[in-house]
Amino acid sequence: MQSPLAGNAPVRGRIVVNGAIHEVEPASPGADGTARVRLADGRIFPESEVQWLPPVEVGTVFALGLNYADHAAELAFKAPEQPLVFLKGPNALTGHHGHSRRPADASYMHYECELAVVIGKTARHVSRADAYDYVAGYTVANDYAIRDYLENYYRPNLRVKNRDACTPLGPWLVDAAHVPDPMKLALRTSVNGKLTQQGNTSDMVFDIPHLIAYLSSLMTLSPGDVILTGTPEGLANVVAGDTVVTEIEGVGRLVNTIVDDQTYYCSH
Rank of each mutant, 00 (worst) to 15 (best):
A9M: 11
V11T: 13
E23M: 14
P26M: 01
A27T: 00
S28K: 10
A31Y: 02
R38K: 14
E49C: 07
E49D: 15
V50D: 06
G59P: 08
F62R: 03
G65T: 08
D70F: 00
A73K: 13
F77Q: 12
K78A: 15
P80W: 09
P90Y: 04
A92D: 05
L93Q: 02
T94Y: 00
G95R: 00
H99F: 15
P103Y: 00
D105W: 04
Y108N: 12
C113Y: 05
C113P: 06
L115A: 08
V118E: 02
H125F: 14
V135N: 10
A141Y: 02
D143C: 05
R147L: 15
Y154W: 14
R155P: 02
N157H: 11
N157R: 13
N157S: 13
L158W: 10
R163D: 13
C166F: 12
L169W: 00
P171C: 04
P171S: 08
P171R: 02
V179M: 02
P180M: 00
S190F: 04
V191R: 13
L195M: 13
Q197G: 13
I208P: 05
I208D: 04
L211P: 04
M219C: 10
L228P: 08
L228Y: 08
G230T: 03
T231I: 01
T231C: 07
P232N: 08
A236K: 14
N237E: 09
V238Q: 03
E247N: 10
E247D: 10
I248K: 14
V255S: 12
V255D: 10
N256E: 05
I258F: 01
Q262T: 15
T263A: 14
C266E: 15
C266N: 15
